[in-house]
Amino acid sequence: MLQRSLHSARTGVEGSTESLMRLRRQSRIREAVIQRLLLTCALVSVFTTVGIVVMLVVQAAGFFSEVSALEFFTGTQWTPLFQPRRFGVLPLVGGTILTAGIAILVALPIGLAAAIYLSEYAHDRVRRAVKPSLEILAGVPTVVYGYFALTFVTPLLRNVFPDMIVFNALSAGLVMGVMIIPMVSSLSEDAMVAVPRSLRDAAYGLGANRFEVATRVVMPAATSGIVAACILALSRAVGETMIMVIAAGSTPRLTFNPLESIQTMTAYIVQISLGETPHGTVEYYTLFAVGLLLFVMTLLMNLFSQWFVGRYREKY
């Protein structure tokens, strides 16, 4: 009775306890529905990943029932589309590593230098103007980069290397390097900016100049973030497709000469997907074997990066 009168005092309406309870129940149900809905959305990406992995593994199993894993992983000839057929994936892996290597050789020094400039040298106003414009680079569609490599960079490079092939690893790698500069610089800069002011003060107080502060204090303290940025950029380079299809060629060849035409794993997958390869044939299944390998490679890189960040994160 007391409770009832308290309730009515609170709501100001006599006998409204039941409606109040109903309202509460409704809102509880709504909460539960919302929670389920959000959970479903979160699970979409998880299920997609699982689906992709299952699909890749099942289809790749079809491939490995016809071709031995030994041949696949150690063979140096990749000619699944014509006789004699060979299924050694190394030329594709080599092409991927070559172009990604060139890209990281470009992106690492330039990206780090840009990050150092932005975090240690640039005035606030400059930083606010430069950082977004660097990030625009990341927004350019990769097909544009591909044609930029083919129609601008390659002719330019041919002035230097006259006997360079039109489709080549160097030009594609260089342009991809430019493409991933913003990843390296932006993430590295975030890591450097997070280094506390007090460490910089300490170094300046000991007579260090700006460059010494940047290279001997800020960069080492930001190592974990910088390494994570580089690995992320590298795995982006390994997975990059369009530039490779357009500018790097479609000649699987195990070479470390960047002036030659090569084929990357991604470019091969595109070639098969577009071609007239009939379903159910070994050629068709190579798609999944190569795709699975690519997936595993980038997954390992990301796992390594996570492990590294956790292991070497500095606690200031």
């Binding site: 460490l199 300490a202 107080g205 080492p220 303290a221």
Partner: peptide, 16 residues
């Protein structure tokens, strides 16, 4: 700064 050293409010050793 090399001839006039400084010690700060919070200990700030380098993570080295």
């Amino acid at each position: 700064r090399y001839r006039i050293g400084m010690v700060f409010q919070k200990p700030n050793p380098f993570p080295k």
